[in-house]
Design a protein around this nucleic acid. Structure first.
Lengths: 339, 339
DNA sequence: TTGTAGGCGTTATCAC
DNA sequence: GTGATAACGCCTACAA
């Protein structure tokens, strides 16, 4: 059914070895011009394609790059994925994309899966959660993977012993807090994401701390926890509304959450920013289509994908490499000067 | 470096065959409880993982599903991808995602690549273009792939001889034209996407034809062609504006194009829908965050992914199976009653 | 139930 | 420069 290299060799009247060298090259040996052309011609005639699996076995390495995301339909991750795809392509690698659907248990399974595939490198994108057991499992899975020659990179918190791109969440949230404080905001609510999610927590705490430095407190019950998704933003906003008192400004720890909140407010007739101001985090491409334009903290998502790929493909070293990525406040229309 | 099945077998004191059967199961043979447990235990102890490539070779089939999209960062495709990922997962398959960046030449290369990988199935998502040469190449690539046991499915036009999910673009555009005509619109402009892109053309022509049935003509110079992207929508809109005369309504053949156009208008101080109405096509999830809410034609994107996967995994048959997907007009705020 | 051995398609190490 | 041939890691008749 399938045409193999042996078929080509026989048909071209050369040995298997020669056919292999002619078609897929060889470091040391080279093939005479005449023979090579004959082989190449018959390969085309027979519509031969090398079997990547067989090559992987023989060569001991594959040409695929695994990417793990929380949710591929989330613009945050699809933008990162686009960056990874671009970089992978530049390295001649195929991207195998897996989505954990925000389930960190699945994430562990998927790392195992990628290890089975003998992926050349694995990139795990998305912040970690404060779950010691899961983190240990993931750390172990990655260690196993690396022990067998794979290399991995993380986008998130540097807690798993592998190369990591660290987004400076605290810095971004701090700058944001100061920017809105400068604009006169004093009464806040926070759509805080999952309570145990590190990125969410970093953003939350830095925001609150920076306000505290200015003498502004955020009450505990002004922070609501809900999933790191659009629906999570909706739910959080409803909770906030049910509590009755609207703040001057809402900080959502993820853009998609801010968008969810805005959708709920729109439906409820609450005007942004007239009735309440809001800001997000991430600067996903979607924002260019949102009105009023959402104030946020820019994370260079596409570049994150490029960097992570680079880091994942870097020479393995003893010490995991940590690379910090700076964030930048982008003040837009949802947080006008208050007074 | 890597632990192999032989290592496990030796360490457990059983034969290779027994180890294989214990770990990866077997249709006919079964392994004694005691031995199986011993094997499994040593496998865990040695941190053994089967090599998927070797299994692929030995079994003659892989467990990966290739998905080809025009652009993974486009919500249209990332939503489809989410559907495919979900369905693939349900079948125990891994998704290999490749993006052609709207370059149909690359698309052909990527099919070849996926064939090399011996992917179990290939899904090509996205409308075809009127390029006989490229289409022939793609048809040939898919035929080669299928000839060697692979199965493929397309989302787009049924012109390549493989199972295809056909989105009923004409029906959607027709319904949309009637709906807006009913609302009083008579003077139109069309952001028509790439001139040779079939889906764009189907939507364009059906829209114009349906209006014609109502006695309303769309002038040739009211149709502008530009890429099927956000930037394409921006460019097209600028072209339209430079021509001086704004229509009553703009039909963009893709949601992202409509969003691009709206962004340009917003910047230019043109109010939607007060100054001009607009509608898109696709109903991407992003729309829930856009104001004013965009009128569009709903394409069940996520479901498209599920269906395509199902179709790609279906028993191969002589005649390619064609499955039609209906679309549905969703009138929102960008096309209010005109008079 | 368990073991032996051949084969999957390719690369790489040898000789020639 | 070219050709045998042994891996690569696993599965699966076939034999015991």
């Amino acid at each position: 059914m399938t045409v193999t290299l042996s078929d080509v060799a026989r048909e071209a009247g050369v040995s298997l070895a020669t056919a292999s060298r002619a078609i897929n090259g060889s470091a040391s040996r080279t093939v005479g011009t005449e023979l090579r052309e004959r082989v190449l011609a018959t390969a085309v005639r027979l519509r031969y394609t090398p079997d990547a699996n067989a090559q992987a076995m023989a060569r001991g390495r594959t040409t695929s790059l695994g990417l793990l995301v929380h949710d591929i339909a989330d613009p945050y991750f699809s933008t990162i994925a686009a960056g990874v795809a671009e970089a992978a392509d530049a390295h001649g690698l195929q991207m195998t994309l897996a989505s954990s659907q925000h389930d960190s248990g699945r994430e562990v399974d998927l790392v195992h899966l990628l290890r089975r595939q003998r992926a050349r490198a694995i990139i795990v994108a998305g912040g970690r959660s404060n779950d010691v057991e899961i983190n240990d499992q993931l750390r172990l899975a990655l260690a196993d993977y690396r022990a067998t020659g794979g290399s991995a990179a993380l986008i998130g918190q540097p807690i798993l012993g592998v190369n990591t791109i660290v987004v400076n969440n605290a810095q971004g949230a701090t700058s944001l807090a100061r920017a809105v404080h400068d604009r006169g905001y004093r009464r806040f609510a926070i759509l805080g994401g999952p309570e145990q999610h590190f990125s969410a927590r970093e953003r939350r705490e830095a925001f609150i701390f920076a306000l505290g430095e200015r003498g502004t407190e955020v009450a505990d019950d002004a922070v609501v926890f809900s999933p790191f998704t659009h629906a999570g933003g909706e739910d959080g906003m409803r909770t906030l509304m049910s509590r009755g008192q609207l703040p001057e400004m809402i900080f959502a720890v993820a853009d998609v959450m801010a968008l969810g909140a805005m959708a709920v407010m729109r439906e409820a007739g609450i005007r942004v920013p007239h009735d309440v101001a809001i800001a997000g985090f991430g600067d996903i491409p979607t924002l260019r289509d949102v009105t009023p334009a959402l104030t946020t903290v820019r994370v260079p998502l596409h570049q994150l994908g490029l960097m992570a790929t680079q880091l994942a493909l870097a020479e393995p070293s003893e010490e995991p490499e940590i690379r910090a990525v700076v964030t930048e406040v982008v003040v837009r229309d949802t947080t006008p000067h208050l007074r």
